[in-house]
Nucleic acid binder design. Structure first.
Length: 200
DNA sequence: TAAAAGGAACCGC
DNA sequence: GCGGTTCCTTTTA
């Protein structure tokens, strides 16, 4: 039978948590996701080990903290500030000029959700394609190229040195029931899919 | 063996 | 209470 593909119908008709998330007092009014993501950058820097896109996560072992140590532009320290959203780094990292209005919708004062974080990485393929990248942007499917790297970035972002992919993926799975992320119909390792409107 | 899945307890905001 | 973390067990590729 197969889950007659797609999003939407995995949601019980009527209740899409996503909607209340965006429309309700979740603090995220309707708006384009791109805009949404642009003004609050939550990324750690790929650091200098950004390297040759793909298989180069090899030097990930000892440079642990390294990643946030050498982060001149998107220094993680910034991210830890509740007010990081207004810090200059959002423009540094994204090159977006801040729409002051958009700041209003805020993402819970300094709280960045994992899915937002991943979206931001995805939106910067130049820096993060060795970590995570779109498989099919329209569809919302993305692949984690380096579970290690992604977990590390996330751990740094949240200041959790013990973060690993096992834990990160557990958080990712929590999104299944919230209708934010799901595994694509055709299951592939390390491939997930943003459900609308999160894939926009 | 790594990834996936999900239960459960816990924590910080 | 929510979102995320941590730990755990079981299953799957």
């Amino acid at each position: 039978m197969a889950n007659t593909n797609n999003q939407t119908n995995n949601m019980a008709a009527g209740e899409n948590p996503a909607h209340q998330f965006f429309n309700g007092n979740g603090g995220y009014p309707n708006m384009s996701m791109s805009g949404f993501f642009q003004q609050g950058t939550v990324l750690p820097s790929p650091s200098n080990s950004d390297t040759s896109s793909n298989g180069s996560s090899q030097d990930m072992n000892d440079d642990d903290m390294d990643i946030h140590m050498n982060t001149p532009n998107c220094g993680l320290s910034n991210f830890f500030h509740p007010g990081y959203m207004n810090s200059p780094l959002d423009s540094m990292c994204n090159g977006s000029e801040g729409d002051d209005d958009d700041r209003a919708y805020t993402r819970h004062q300094g709280t960045v959700h994992l899915w937002q974080f991943i979206r931001e990485l995805l939106d910067q393929p130049k820096q993060y394609s060795n970590c995570v990248r779109w498989v099919d942007r329209d569809e919302g499917t993305f692949k984690i190229e380096s579970s290690l790297l992604l977990a590390r970035y996330w751990g740094q972002r949240k200041n959790r040195s013990q973060m690993n992919y096992d834990k990160l993926s557990r958080s990712l799975r929590q999104y299944y029931k919230k209708g934010i992320i799901q595994k694509p119909e055709k299951k592939q390792r390390l491939v997930y899919k943003f459900l609308p409107p999160y894939n926009m």
